[in-house]
Design a protein around this nucleic acid. Structure first.
Lengths: 121, 121
DNA sequence: TGGTTATAAAACCGATTGGTAATGAATCCT
DNA sequence: AGGATTCATTACCAATCGGTTTTATAACCA
């Protein structure tokens, strides 16, 4: 699977509050499915489906403890996603948006200029 | 809309290569729809739909330039998403995963211990 | 052995997604 | 006035998603 597809799956996995909550819980340590399901008002199969999404995204891995399948956080894909976002850091820290906005404003002014001229056509 | 829903939309918007490519293009400056659609093997309405997703996520805004609707990058939601990911930074930089793995390993050893005892039952 | 617990898997459902083609509307150009 | 350009909207379709209930599998416990 190529890096773009990996980003697809990572971001898609993160685009759900249940899955983000599961990751938050796993950041405190590995946990079996039942414990992960506890806080949610949904069936166990629903949680298992969310876990499969997280697993396919590489965000969790599963072990074996008797009849339990403990889940553990695997954060590398989070690191990759964070790396991707870093490429845009200057846009929310700097004033690149204002530059664009300025250009837009200039165009708008030009347009109004034209409109004025148009009025006494 | 609450912050969790905003994260939902931001991550969902980022979970598509076309939309990430559009953001990459917009990082070079504002652009009208036709120019954004150019590189893609898909219809103009398809691109407009992607733009609507990005707009609903607050990742772009649109201006007016005659009959064009130039799109401009709005990176604040990217900053919020990055901030969320930062909470997990130590997990891909540190050795927290190894700690979990160690606990799993200890459990596995205990289980094997039991199995051995079980053999001469 | 038989019952309970933990989890996965299957079948199903409605809503959403990502695409299409066709149409409409605003603005430009002549 | 009339045609071309830019873009949005609508209607439609197949695929995916997030949930359900039901059933199956595996390991524990008595």
């Amino acid at each position: 699977m190529n890096p773009s597809q990996r980003l697809d799956r990572t971001f898609a996995a993160l685009a759900d509050p249940t899955r983000r909550a599961i990751l938050a819980r796993l950041s405190l340590g590995a946990a079996p499915v039942t414990e992960l399901a506890g806080p949610f008002a949904m069936s166990q199969p629903a949680v298992s489906k969310h876990l499969k999404v997280l697993e396919r995204a590489g965000l969790i891995s599963r072990g074996r403890d008797r009849q339990r399948r403990p889940c553990r956080l695997e954060a590398k894909p989070l690191g990759d996603a964070s790396g991707w976002l870093e490429g845009y850091r200057r846009f929310w820290e700097g004033n690149f948006q204002r530059l664009d906005a300025l250009l837009d404003q200039m165009k708008t002014l030009k347009k109004r200029e034209r409109t004025k001229r148009g009025k006494h056509r």
